[in-house]
Design a protein around this nucleic acid. Structure first.
Length: 891
RNA sequence: GGGCGCAUAGCUCAGCGGUAGAGCGCCUGCCUUACAAGCAGGAUGUCACUGGUUCGAUCCCAGUUGUGCCCACCA
């Protein structure tokens, strides 16, 4: 049996979730801190804490409050899904921001809600129906919409549950849904206003049509990807008058109504105006001159299909060509003849085959890589289609939206992301807003028997009587979400909420929906409210897996946030996400990282528990610094510096940095040094020293408040136990008292250096922890005197008599700690170590000497740099002298 | 075809004109009277390549290579 397979004895652990549940549920403060279990078990606690926060109304904002408002509206998740890590990420940031502001005394509102997600949701429900062998047409419009509402109730609830689990401090009393009555009214009001202002119009144009969803979609709902196609050259015409055109979509030739050449192309000037026989049909088509044609591409002759291609549509309009539609809404050929009834792809091969038979295929390139549009919802190949749709005239709105960022009324963070915004806003085409769907806001337009068109506002009666019908289409889902920042606050009514909370402060969202959503909100906000919807746009990256790969179902690397929250707690997930949040960059995350964050939460838990058991307290005033030890002053100095640092990072949305600063302060400084050093005082007389206990209480109190926005759950139980306060949610955000003590910081740096050096010595020497080493600790100089006992304790050194065999001396500020050790010391090991240090010091001396001998350097380098090099040089010299002496002593 | 970004430790990423950093991982020793989800000690980098600017370049500039993303109606 190998050593590795010998099971390690299982250590008795004190895991008892029930204890904690009792503690947190029934009593704010346990009888004794020892009642807190030694391991933090988040799963059971978090839910209870959350519900208590909600019951107490901590997250409900008051529009009548005198406090300064701070508002964030949530990017409404689609009711179609469940929340993924990307949501968890953004929610963590928004929650941390609002929690901090609430603690700072703002009237903080984080408004929750969901988006009806028209096409996406309709597709889901249609899928569900398909499983029952039904279609939406079988149900009829009203019944189908009822089904979708049912679906919304079921799945929307799941999302809300996930938000609670994450700890989202949202105001549930203000929860909104884009199909709510109030929001529908906002949609109709805006539609009417835009219609009256001439910003909404109806026109027949080529749009992106999804033959599977059976609706128009906007340009940005089309995803282009490189597909393998087939480029063929077709010969049209007969005898002298033939042309050769290239196409990847041969089936559209049935709808060709012209061939175009460039007006200046000398090769084809003679053809302009001639009629060409179109194969497979009995039609002839003209040759037209249009400067859109690129003479360099292919033959310089282009087939023109105005009803099935956006460019050709424009050419058709310029030359007044007929527009022949050759397929129906499902992409099936409708032209009478041999191809009728064939699907567009079947028709393509059939037509190529037929032309090949006639010898009219001159060249075939297969495969031919080209960019093809797909429906972003169902991936079906988009079919450009001529149809009548409603449009928004974007230019004036986009201008205003762009100006708002240009003149700084809205700031984009990080700033270099703003180029994406401008690229879009400055080049936006008109927006197709009608969708041939049933789920969504129905277009408030009625058509009369004589072709009259009436747009009806929300408080107006639609025209009655024979022959009047409402437009069957609904609006693009982004039309209603574009109104979100003010429709959720009660607009078009002049509500107290609207007055208090609009414009909102910051929008936190992914850079991937700048065009879909951010730009639209900016357009609607400036147009409808005459005021920007938010002062700051904080763009986040996308959450990726631990190797930076995109999370997708096909890679199989999608993670349900609930799984990780169940295993490691919400705090762990939140901390991990926050610590990965460098502005604008994607956020990789892996399970091991969440585990590490769980360990951090556990560390906070245990260290605080330990401190509580040993007299950390917030009772009474903080003692005067003159009564404190240098260690006390050091940690308070660091505490206040950390408060300032964290605040600065929050103001700049630097979540990764503030998370790191918090962990460093808590773990490295408070737990590993301050608590450890305090142990001596704690244990010295069996009772904690009063001053240190109070200082430690202060440090923990502030630290927990500082941590709370990111890790709300673990901090709540500990903080209420420590302080007896009602809840850290409504505690005051710490502020920098301004206390700094450079002297104490320097002294502690020296102590740390000394202690580390001695530990290193022990490790090098292979001294066992339990092994008592007779030694004498000399403090040369006084500043360290206060720490003699702590160091002795940590090292387990015992004062002894004479008889030394080896010496290690340690450099500290203004003093040398001479550590004389007796006993079985490995002289060779120490000699090797010292030699290594000596070599490093000599290298340093050489480098600094060379630098200081460089006149150009001395002349041009700034003083502080030169001083730094000088200091380094003298330090190196001292080190060398010291090390040489030590080596000599070793004999 | 345009535009933007990135290349730093085994992995994921900070950083920055003046001695290379963190987390995780790794090596060694430890069940030290809170925490082994822990403690202590340690190792690890031609900062992609080639030039240039500078007293000094991982950092600024140019080019090269690799890589990612966004936009675009190339028939």
């Amino acid at each position: 049996m190998s050593a590795a397979s010998v099971p390690k004895p299982i250590r008795e652990r004190d895991i008892d979730a029930r204890t904690l549940a009792v503690v947190t549920e029934n009593t704010q403060r346990p009888e004794s801190p020892a009642d807190l279990p030694t391991q933090y078990t988040p799963a059971e606690v978090e839910g209870k804490l959350y519900e208590r926060w909600v019951e107490r109304g901590y997250f409900e904002a008051d529009a009548k409050s005198e406090k300064t408002p701070y508002t964030i509206v949530i990017p409404p998740p689609n009711v179609t899904g469940s929340l993924h890590l990307g949501h968890a990420f953004q929610h963590t940031l928004m929650d941390a921001l609002t929690r901090r502001k609430r603690m700072q005394g703002y009237e903080a509102l984080w408004l929750p809600g969901m988006d009806h997600a028209g096409i996406a949701t309709q597709n889901k429900v249609e899928q569900q129906l398909a499983e029952e062998g039904k279609s939406r047409q079988d149900l009829g419009r009203d019944e189908f919409v009822r089904r979708v509402w049912q679906w919304k109730e079921e799945y929307g609830g799941k999302i809300l549950g996930q938000m609670r689990r994450l700890g989202d401090g949202v105001d549930w009393s203000r929860e909104r849904f884009t199909m709510d009555e109030g929001l529908s009214r906002a949609v109709q009001t805006v539609f009417k206003k835009m219609y009256d202002d001439g910003l909404i119009y109806r026109a027949e144009r080529i749009i992106n049509w999804c033959p599977r969803c059976l609706t128009a979609i906007s340009d940005i709902e089309v995803e282009y990807q490189e597909d393998d196609g087939e480029l063929v050259q077709l010969q049209y015409g007969e005898g002298e008058e033939t042309v050769v055109v290239a196409t990847t979509r041969a089936e559209t030739m049935l709808g060709d109504t012209a061939v175009a050449v460039h007006p200046d192309d000398p090769r084809y000037r003679h053809l302009i105006g001639k009629q060409i026989k179109l194969p497979l049909t009995d039609r002839t088509i003209p040759v037209v001159a249009d400067s859109h044609v690129d003479p360099e591409f292919g033959t310089g002759q282009v087939k023109v299909t105005p009803a099935h291609d956006p460019n050709d549509f424009e050419i058709g309009r310029r030359h007044d060509l007929p527009m022949i539609t050759v397929m129906d809404e499902r992409g099936v050929i409708t032209v009478p003849g041999p191809f009728e009834g064939l699907d567009r792809f079947e028709a393509r091969s059939a037509i190529v085959a037929a032309l090949r038979e006639q010898g009219r295929i001159l060249e075939e390139k297969r495969p031919y890589k080209h960019s093809v549009g797909h429906c972003s919802r169902c991936k079906t190949t988009i079919e450009p289609r001529l149809s009548m749709q409603w449009w928004v005239k974007v230019a004036p709105l986009a201008q205003a939206a762009g100006d708002a960022v240009r003149d700084g009324r809205t700031k984009i963070h990080p700033a270099d992301m703003s180029s994406r915004y401008f690229d879009w806003v400055d080049n936006m085409h008109d927006w197709t807003i009608s969708r041939q769907l049933w789920w969504g806001h129905r277009i408030p337009v009625w058509y009369g028997p004589g072709g009259e068109v009436v747009c009806v506002g929300p408080d107006e009666e639609p025209p009655g009587g024979e022959g009047w019908t409402q437009d069957p289409d609904v609006l693009d889902t982004w039309f209603s979400s574009g109104l979100w920042p003010f429709s959720t606050l009660g607009w078009p009514d002049e509500t107290p909420d609207l007055a208090k909370f609009y414009p909102t402060d910051v929008l936190v969202t992914g850079y991937d929906i700048i065009f879909f959503w951010v730009a639209r909100m900016m357009m609607f906000g400036t147009y409808v409210m005459d005021e920007v919807p938010f002062h700051t746009i904080q763009l986040t990256g996308l959450v990726r897996d631990e190797h930076g790969k995109k999370m997708s179902k096909s890679f199989g690397n999608v993670v349900d946030p609930l799984d990780w929250m169940d295993a490691y707690g919400s705090d762990a997930l939140r901390y991990t996400l926050a610590s990965g949040a460098n502005p604008g960059t994607d956020v990789p995350i892996g399970e091991d990282w969440v585990k590490a964050s769980r360990n951090f939460a556990n560390k906070i838990w245990n260290a605080t528990r330990f401190a509580l058991m040993n007299g950390a307290t917030v009772e009474g005033p903080l003692p005067d610094p003159s009564e404190m030890s240098a260690t006390d002053r050091w940690i308070l100095s660091r505490l206040n510096a950390t408060v300032a640092e964290v605040d600065a990072y929050y103001e700049d949305y630097q979540f990764a940095k503030l998370s790191d600063a918090l962990r460093h302060f808590a773990w490295d400084e408070v737990f590993d040094w301050y608590v450890e050093l305090s142990k001596t005082t704690f244990f010295a007389g069996g009772r904690p020293a009063e001053v240190s206990g109070r200082v430690l209480g202060e440090v923990l109190d502030v630290m927990l408040r500082l941590l709370h926005p990111v890790v709300p759950f673990v901090t709540e139980t500990l903080w209420t136990t420590l302080t007896g306060g009602e809840s850290v949610v409504v505690a005051e955000w710490p502020s920098d008292s301004g206390f700094r003590d450079a002297e104490a910081e320097a002294e502690l740096a020296a102590v740390q250096q000394a202690v580390t050096e001695v530990r290193r010595f022990r490790a090098d020497q292979g001294l066992q922890p339990g092994q008592k080493v007779p030694a004498r600790l000399d403090l040369d100089g006084t500043p360290l005197a206060a720490h003699e006992e702590p160091i002795r304790q940590l090292l387990r050194l015992q004062p002894a008599g004479d008889g030394f065999q080896a010496t290690a001396s340690l450099p500290v500020v203004g003093a040398t700690v001479a550590l004389d050790l007796s006993g079985a010391i490995d002289v060779e090991a120490e000699r090797k170590r010292l030699a290594k240090d000596l070599a490093a010091a000599e290298k340093e001396l050489k480098q600094t000497t060379a630098k200081l001998g460089n006149e150009a350097f001395l002349a041009k380098a700034p003083d502080h740099v030169v001083d730094k090099i000088r200091t380094r040089k003298s330090a190196a010299e001292a080190d060398i002298e010291r090390l040489k002496g030590q080596i000599e002593k070793l004999g």
